[in-house]
Amino acid sequence: MDLLNALVALTNFVIIPATAYGAQLALGALGVTLIYGILRFSNFAHGDTMAFGAMVTILATWWLQGMGVSLGPLPTALLALPIGIVVTALLLLGTDRVIYSFYREQKAKPVVLVIVSMGVMFMMNGLVRFIIGPDDQRFDDGARFIINARDFREMTGLDEGLVFRTSQGLTIVTAVIVCALLFWFLNHTRTGKSMRAYSDNEDLALLSGINPERVVAITWIIVAALATVAGVLYGLDKTFKPFTYFQLLLPIFASAIVGGLGSPLGAIVGGFVIAFSEVTVTYAWKKVITYLWPGDWAPDGLVQLLSTDYKFAVSFVILVIVLLFRPTGIFKGKAV
């Protein structure tokens, strides 16, 4: 029995990756949930918005790298992030003006807006592929590791190595900062309060003189920032490929729904619930069990509950369970 090694293996393969992935999902789900709360529809174009934001940031990163700018150990993409956010915000505001606002004035049913967002999803997807192509793009630079396996082993004398990549650390730190800013904004500023009021009760909010167009515009800007940050962090941590972002739609929506659509806190909790279940169910537990088992026994198989190819199934099953037993999500969401 070797508790310390087991703990290190668990941290290395489950806790750190799941926390980073959970943070990315939470940021994505926050965007979905904000749109649902304020604009009252499920935005299927969100995955591709993330891809677009990440793409602009990548292009800006390459430009900065070409000029010789660098952040030392941190990836240059951080410097390019504001550019990505601004361009994405402009795109979303433009889409809203040209496409969504028409249906808002008509007071169209939410499902019509969902179908419209499907059209926008196609267009954004096409746009991203047109500009940057459908292939993998690498744009990370700077130091790759905060802790690498060998240093950790030498430092602690344990058999098991611990890897903590810069992108993972960055993801977690950024997510915390972004969430703190968002909650401060929603709870303590006048605009944020007006957004919450609009989300809770549109009629009362309008009566008390809140300008709906302003609320909507600010929502899109915040969503652009969240989507770009989430997309860039995911791209830094894993890889940038337009199609993967489209596939992220399912876990992101699962997170938002599990937490309760319309509830920002729920989106964060949902993101971590989904990420931790995905990683624990698809992790091969053989190593940890071998360390923990008294004596010299090791399991025959990998002790993997499900192969990683079925990770979608995990988010799906959790989604279904939550919907069946608590249809409005963990934190009471809203229903249009």
Partner: peptide
């Protein structure tokens, strides 16, 4: 709800 059915079928 319709959005939930949508996500469920997507999954």
């Amino acid at each position: 709800r319709s959005d939930y059915l949508a996500i469920a079928t997507l999954g």
